[in-house]
Every structure is written in C-alpha cells, then in structure tokens.
Design a protein around this nucleic acid. Structure first.
Lengths: 132, 132
DNA sequence: GTATTTTTGCAACACTGTCGCAAAAAATGA
DNA sequence: TCATTTTTTGCGACAGTGTTGCAAAAATAC
C-alpha cells in the first residue's frame, strides 16, 4: 500500500508532512523514533506534526508503537496483523520486526482480555554479531 | 529474601532509602514507576536516589525494568529468572507479572544473540473486566 | 473559486531521567 | 567506640520526549 493509499483508506487529509512521514516508514524495516524521522525530514515538518501523525497512525493500527528500553518510542509499519517480535540491538541500536519469528500462542489466565502485544527481545543483531 | 538480605547479597550499602525502596517493591506484585515510588516514599528520599537505586537494582538483575507504552518505565522484583510476560491493564493502568504464563521458546534467526526480553501484553485485567 | 474543515507551526509546558558536586551517611578497622 | 575512608544522598541544573492551545495555512467540499 502507498502512503496516499493508506491516508485515503483511513480518511485522513493528504498533507505533505503525512505523506512524507508515511513514505519514510514504508521505506524501511527498521523502527524509527520521532527524532529519527525529524532528521530525515529536515525542514519538511515540525516535531509536533510528526508526533501527531505518529499518534494518529498508531491509533488506526497502521503503525506499531514499540516501547523500547530508555525513553523513546519507535514506530514501524504493521506488515502483519498477528503478533510478532521486535528485536533491539544494543550495539547498533536498531529495532527490527522479526518477521517469521512467531511467539507461541500465549494463554492468559481467566478473565484477562488481550488487546495488543509488545514483544521485545534485546541482544545483538546478526550484522553486529559478526563484527565482535 | 528481605530488603536487607538483597542489599547484602549484592554488596550494596544499606541506606535508609534503598531499604525503603526495596521494601515497597517486595511488598507488591504490581510494577511501580519512579513516580509511584516517590509518592509512597514521600519525604524519605529524593527523585535522584530512587532513579539511582532502580538503575543499580536493574543492573544487578534484582528487578526488571519494563518498558510500557508511554514514557515511563516500571519496575518489579524478579521472582523467576526465566522469561515471563507482563500484563498492562489499560483500565486501571496496573502492570503485573503473569507468573505461570510462559512464552513458547522463541527461535531467533541465525546470528542473533539474545540477552534479555520484554514481553508486554496490553488489555483489560480480570478485576477491571468484571466491572465492564 | 469560495466556504468550511482540518492540519500545521510555533511556543510553552510538564515530565522523565541524568549528572556534578558538596554535604551526609555508611562501612572499615583499630 | 571513634576516627578515617568510601559510598551515597540531596540539590539544582539540565537535555530530551511528548503534549497542547491557538492563530495561520492548507486541504477538502461544494
């Protein structure tokens, strides 16, 4: 799906900033923070706009907000609707979707209702592991 | 293990603040943020001390730092060394360890090295679900 | 093309987490 | 127990994240 296509589908105004933000997110498999987006979109839009766009896209389920260690949240396009795992490399700092790695079906105790999940594994990624 | 016992085991000075912080953490199964600890320890110790203590205890593996959605980190005593799942209720906001609920063994792709994990399920807890 | 609605940029703000440094408290050891 | 050394605390300052109100600007609707 294209940036414009996504905005249409969710009935969001097609503003320059939103299209550019979505294009960045669509063009990478690495989760980006607001900061990282800001650097890639230097001068194109304001911090506040990025935050507002990320919030809106999260709420509509287009992107996934990943709570990593530390303070900053990172965001990736949701490619699969099902649960999946994110991996954070402590060496390069990158956060990726681990497509293909599916967590076993988790049974919650009675009475608990699941809405969404956030599985993060922290370690060293394949690229950084080679250079150790 | 008692607060003092833990501090002894890890060769940490037994200061008033640390003992009180540990007692709070030992006395609940709900993950607490620095903020929540501060309110419970009104006037006993400074923000900076709480942060420093939480950091030290995390590094020694006594407590688990949970990155929840939003900005604040929450902390719980590690009861089991193995991976386990945390549950955050969107209604009451409480974060709990789901002891007993074990994630299936997750196989990472070749080359990835796992250090630690952070599994968070977001939803409605049993208590809040009853009152819906 | 104009009117209406939505979004933006800006500035201000609250909050989290960190740090340096002098003062205070805890550990050490006779 | 008391003096010395080591560690920790509290304070203030700070950088960064994320949010918000509001007027101006842009997008949509007609």
């Amino acid at each position: 799906m294209s940036a414009i296509g996504i905005l249409s589908e969710y009935k969001m105004s097609k503003t320059n900033g939103r299209v550019k933000i979505l294009k960045e997110l669509l063009g990478t498999d690495i989760a980006l923070s607001e900061r990282e987006l800001q650097m890639r979109l230097e001068g194109i839009c304001d911090r506040a706009t990025i935050y507002r766009t990320l919030k809106a896209l999260s709420q509509k389920g287009v992107i996934h907000k990943i709570a990593t260690e530390g303070t900053v949240a990172k965001f990736v396009i949701k490619k699969t609707p099902e649960d999946h795992i994110h991996f954070k490399c402590t060496d390069c700092g990158k956060v990726r979707c681990m497509t293909g790695v599916v967590p076993g079906n988790i049974e919650l105790p009675k009475g608990f209702i699941k809405k969404e999940s956030n599985y993060l594994i922290i370690g060293i990624c394949d690229v950084c592991a080679k250079n150790l």
